[in-house]
Design a protein around this nucleic acid. Structure first.
Lengths: 192, 192
DNA sequence: AATTTACACTAGCGCTTGCTTGGTTGCCCC
DNA sequence: GGGGCAACCAAGCAAGCGCTAGTGTAAATT
């Protein structure tokens, strides 16, 4: 009946869907709205995606995969001090929020709308990303750069960062690098 | 046609609606589901609320108002040191998450589903709550207990705390007091 | 030249949605 | 002992929903 590969066309449609999902929310976004945004009729949409759920999964997968790539690249190209690695992760996280904002907002807000199969698949991607964070935080703890409970510290840091999607304005005066600096300074208690 | 006062009956219905909104999300929760949970028929629902939107607004208002009350009470009954006040705010925040969890989860996830009028009204409540936080953080900054940009620090702290709704398990080994301690320790760099 | 593939279209089915209407119940108070 | 009223109900409307069926067509493949 239809295809489910990752053609370039499908990637572009996914990007457009992400924007609508952010504007309206997944449930309020109808397949007719999606089709109109994509410049096709609603029936044609199901040539590219099996159903509406699959569009949501595609959006979230795309964003998470990019975050993982950027974080890995950032870790590989920075100094090997715990502080530099903390900052690299924070900056990478915030930069992803800039370039893939829509996808990440959708991932944060609409995660629960995924059906169980899609969630099972995507949870592994997310775990891989969070594992990077916990490794970096472990190093910082071992080096005495920060203190406290391993689990709680990583949750607090991820919370502070993820929350930025609700207030961070890329057009404002602060760069992702500024924010990363300030966050690391806050938890390591060194002047920014 | 119908009433919009704050009768005890309406309060109870609001509480039940909050739970369904958390389970299903606002958009997926139908008026028929709400009515069934409340033990009435869907038509009767519109005797208590003008429309579905008003139920959402009632849920969020209830939760935010309680958070404000608890935070104020907590500030009044704690020591007047910056550190004690920081901890009091953090603990109050987490305790509210325990007692009013449903309402707060709805406030975080479904805020954008509010229509503009309701949002205008509720945003003042939220601002009042956040103003409490910023005052306490200002005191901590002035006292040299923490360092950094006033705006960023308060956003990071609120982010870390608000994010707890996504992972905190009240049945687990950690109490709200534990978490508050650990968070304050993390940003003031004292051993937990 | 024949066939397949990719992508789009029109039309509409079957169902659910939020909300309305018009009327009934049972309790309270004068 | 009857008027008033909050609370409820049965029934259903108009609109919108996700998705399917069947068809057209231009390009790629055989």
């Amino acid at each position: 009946m239809n295809v489910m590969n990752d053609s370039p066309r499908r990637k572009e449609l996914t990007r457009q869907a992400a924007q609508l999902f952010v504007q309206e929310g997944f449930d309020r976004t109808t397949v007719r709205m999606l089709a109109q945004e994509m410049g096709i009729k609603s029936g044609s949409l199901f040539h590219h995606f099996r159903d509406k759920q699959e569009i949501l999964a595609a959006v979230i997968e795309e964003g998470t995969q990019n975050a993982l790539l950027i974080a890995r690249a950032s870790l590989e190209s920075c100094d090997h001090t715990p502080e530099a690695r903390l900052q690299a992760m924070a900056r990478a996280h915030l930069e992803t929020l800039l370039t893939d904002r829509n996808a990440h907002v959708v991932a944060l807000y609409e995660w629960r709308r995924l059906d169980p199969e899609a969630r099972d698949h995507l949870i592994h991607l997310r775990d891989a990303y969070e594992a990077l964070w916990e490794a970096v935080i472990d190093e910082a703890l071992d080096a005495g750069l920060i203190h406290g409970d391993r689990f709680l510290v990583s949750r607090f840091v991820m919370g502070a960062l993820n929350w930025t999607v609700r207030w961070y304005d890329p057009a404002g005066p602060r760069s992702p690098d500024d924010l990363a600096h300030e966050l690391v300074a806050m938890i390591t208690q060194r002047p920014a």
